[in-house]
Design a protein around this nucleic acid. Structure first.
Lengths: 333, 333
DNA sequence: TAAGGTTGTGTAACCGTTTACATTTTAACC
DNA sequence: GGTTAAAATGTAAACGGTTACACAACCTTA
């Protein structure tokens, strides 16, 4: 592999000049630049990223830490990040944290020494101290789905509360009168906001009772179990709003197993808009988050900060949209 | 951040000695080593990975190139790779190629200059020349799902042909007599092998006809269309072996739309074993590949080669296993 | 006891860039 | 033409490690 010195020699200039041409920094006589370019061409010279990284403390790499790429919510996020990064010539390192603060810290420790340009955390367990320490070293960060309190960096999330309200209102319009909610782990702000949205709308219903809210873990199995509880408590329930799609799928399964027909007897609505929702029978109504766009936006914000060095610690809340499908269809009379 | 020179100064030795202690190379007096260790501790010194990378041409990074992380087959693969890599202290760069040779080349070009330690290609379109050029630079590679001809590097895949035979035999045992096959793009060896396995077993059936084989694209929509064709040609067909799970899901949908009941009238079997298969109604029988293990194995082989420098260009074919579910259930009489 | 091995350590070159600073050349103005 | 600013280029010191080579001190061994 040719080095910058080879190029300099062939072009009859110093390495500094070659570097200037490559980076289009400072001024270079256009004729000289031509010589250099020709030499670069001739030697098939490509600048070495590691040497650059060492000198400039930036490797052209961003890191995406998420809980688990196996969770069907995250591939779209990852793809959004990667597409934007790749377009700008950066590469993406992927880390699965399993929502373990320790694992996150370990990624940060290792990657910091690799001079990565920035981090995107889609994981809910990042430690405040880790964020602080990265900020101190002026390493850009973008957070997904975190609370406002962490106002020291840009945060992206979607409008979970509004989404939940949309879901419940939709169920009402479709004729439901007794609507239950399976909520996710309350340490996640997303789960809290969805619960709040539910309460705001469903709380006004005549048939409402706090016992219509049961907890789940954001996975299929817990959705299933939640339905068992709900049916026992409220045999007359006619609508379920699940805190995410996986739990909604579990609910669908439990209802099917008990011979309760969806949507005729009970209508079900999920949240997230993952691909699975088009595959269930009946297809699942859901409140779709713009997951790919969230990833892409996170990457763009991160890259902007990397390029400009300017922090914009704004909170961006993206709009969600309801996708009505068969699982909440009103029977034609 | 402290550097190796700070440590050397504090310990009263040369940087070479510090380096020796860190890397446990060459011999160092144990007393001296103690001093160095103490200094390292005291300064919270962590070696800089980029400087190391520049000197040693290895950044402690491996690359996983796959067609598209959105395809539900790949997250498990990625997770397998990442878990093994993370355990050994390496990080993983992820690239989506969209099965475009150009995109793969572009990743290779960029990443080579980042001194990545090795590549795993789960993408079917890597150019022979790219493989060659990496091999020439002694950069380790592992290939997934490629043919034998590319015998210049380790290849991992699962036993697609046996799996297809398992699937068809299972359908026969469940009572099917006229079994169709929806095959994937024939430029993929996986799709070819599955087709061969199908022909080998189904070809012996009385009702067999070449027109029972129709093509698909490994996606849901093409599975749907394939069924339309099949039903038109063979209204009496009673079994479908789809070349992958996504097409099987499409088949299920098309059958459902036409009011054909699964498994009573037609039985359906997929291939891959992705999570979706547990969510359909009826749940989908499938031939499961050990996807996570394939990823983990690929990473282990790669890391072995990185550590030892020894190439073992073997082809490993992993066993698949049939998971019988409702979509092929025989009605009790 | 002289020759030949180990063991332990330091010196300095090297990996391939960027960039602060110095120096030279050119342009611009009165 | 002389002064000054701007443009163009070169020199060499970072960036933070690894490692070939040299050398000293201490053992062996015949």
């Amino acid at each position: 592999m040719a080095t910058i010195r080879d190029v300099a020699r062939l072009a009859g200039v110093s390495v500094a000049t070659v570097s200037r041409v490559i980076n289009q920094k400072d001024s270079v006589n256009s004729e000289t630049a031509g010589q250099v370019l020709k030499a670069i061409e001739q030697l098939h010279y490509v600048p070495n990223a590691v040497a650059r990284g060492l000198a400039g403390k930036k490797m052209g790499i961003i890191v995406l830490i998420l809980p688990d790429i196996l969770n069907p919510f995250f591939p779209a996020l990852a793809r959004g990040v990667e597409d934007v990064a790749h377009k700008k010539g950066l590469t993406v390192i992927l880390g699965n944290s399993d929502d373990l603060g320790i694992k996150e810290s370990s990624y940060i420790k290792v990657l910091r020494e690799k001079y990565v340009d920035g981090f995107i955390f889609a994981s809910n367990t990042i430690r405040e101290e880790d964020v602080e320490s990265l900020r101190n070293d002026r390493i850009p960060i973008v957070l997904l789905d975190r609370g406002l309190n962490t106002a020291s960096c840009p945060v992206i999330r979607s409008n979970n509360r509004e989404g939940a309200k949309l879901a419940v209102q939709h169920l009402i319009v479709q004729g439901c009168q007794k609507i239950a909610h399976i909520y996710g782990p309350q340490e996640f702000i997303t789960a809290r906001d969805r619960l709040l949205g539910y309460e705001e709308v469903a709380g006004r219903l005549k048939g409402y009772s706090p016992s219509l809210m049961v907890s789940g873990n954001f996975d299929i199995e817990s959705g299933r179990k939640a339905v068992e509880q709900l049916i026992a408590r409220h045999p007359d329930l006619d609508g379920i709003f699940a805190g995410n799609d996986l739990m909604a799928v579990g609910a669908l399964k439990a209802l099917h197993d008990r011979g309760i027909r969806v949507p005729e007897q009970v209508k079900v609505c999920g949240f997230d808009g993952i691909g699975l929702t088009e595959i269930t029978e009946p297809e699942l109504t859901t409140v779709a988050q713009p997951v790919y766009e969230m990833g892409a936006l996170a990457a763009r914000i991160l890259l902007d900060e990397i390029e400009s060095g300017i922090r914009e610690n704004t909170l961006r809340e993206l709009d969600v949209r309801l996708i009505p499908r068969k699982s909440t269809r009103k029977e034609e009379t």
